[in-house]
Computed example of a mutant assay.
Amino acid sequence: MQNIIGIDIGGSHITLAQVDPEKREIISSTYVREHVDAFDKKEIIFSAWVSAIEKVAHDLVEEDLLIGIAMPGPFDYENGISLMQQGKFIDIYQVNIKEELAKRLGISQEQIHFVNDAAAFMEGEVYGGCAQGFNRIFGVTLGTGLGTTFFNGELATDEDLWDSPFRASISEDYLATRWFVNRYKEMTGEEISGTKDLLDKPKEIQTRIFDEYADSFSEFIEKYVDHYKPKVLVIGGNIAKAYPYFEQQFIQNLTKNNINLQVKISAIFEDAAILGAASYALKKRI
Rank of each mutant, 00 (worst) to 15 (best):
M71V: 10
K283R: 15
E247Y: 05
F180A: 00
T177S: 12
E219W: 00
D117C: 10
P21K: 01
K103Y: 03
I5H: 13
E54L: 08
I27Y: 09
I45Y: 04
Q252H: 10
K229D: 12
I239H: 00
G236S: 01
A102I: 00
V95P: 12
K55F: 09
P202K: 13
V61D: 13
D8R: 06
E212G: 15
I221W: 01
D173H: 11
A267K: 01
D37W: 12
I69R: 08
Y213A: 01
K283G: 10
L105G: 00
D64Y: 09
Y77R: 10
R24A: 03
I107R: 01
E191R: 02
Y245N: 05
V140T: 10
R178V: 10
K41Q: 14
S108A: 11
D226W: 01
D271R: 02
N258I: 11
N116S: 12
M1D: 11
S108P: 04
I69P: 03
I81G: 03
I9W: 07
G237A: 06
Q206P: 04
R183W: 09
I251F: 05
G139Q: 02
I90E: 11
I97Y: 08
F220E: 05
E43L: 02
L66R: 01
E247A: 13
D64W: 07
F180M: 05
N3W: 04
M71A: 14
S169Q: 08
M122K: 04
D160Q: 11
I9M: 08
L233T: 05
I235Y: 03
F134Q: 14
A131I: 03
P72V: 12
I14C: 01
I137P: 06
V225S: 08
D215G: 00
I90S: 10
D76H: 10
I44A: 06
I107N: 06
M187L: 15
Q18M: 13
I205S: 06
Q86C: 00
G153C: 04
D158H: 12
I7G: 11
G143R: 02
D59H: 15
G73W: 12
Y228S: 01
Y243A: 06
H113R: 08
V56P: 07
N116V: 05
T188S: 13
Y245W: 07
K98F: 09
T141G: 01
G276L: 11
E212F: 05
G189I: 10
Y184I: 08
T149I: 05
P230Y: 01
E78G: 09
V50K: 05
N152T: 15
V32E: 09
N3I: 04
A102E: 01
G87F: 11
Q248Y: 00
T255S: 13
V115M: 04
Q85L: 13
V225N: 11
W179R: 01
V19P: 03
I274H: 06
G153W: 07
I205E: 09
A214Q: 02
F134T: 02
L233Q: 07
I44T: 12
S28K: 11
A120Y: 09
L161G: 05
E22I: 15
K231S: 14
N135C: 05
Y243Q: 10
I235G: 03
I7D: 05
D20E: 04
L146M: 14
A242Q: 03
V263F: 12
E222M: 02
M71T: 07
E190F: 15
Q2W: 13
V263L: 09
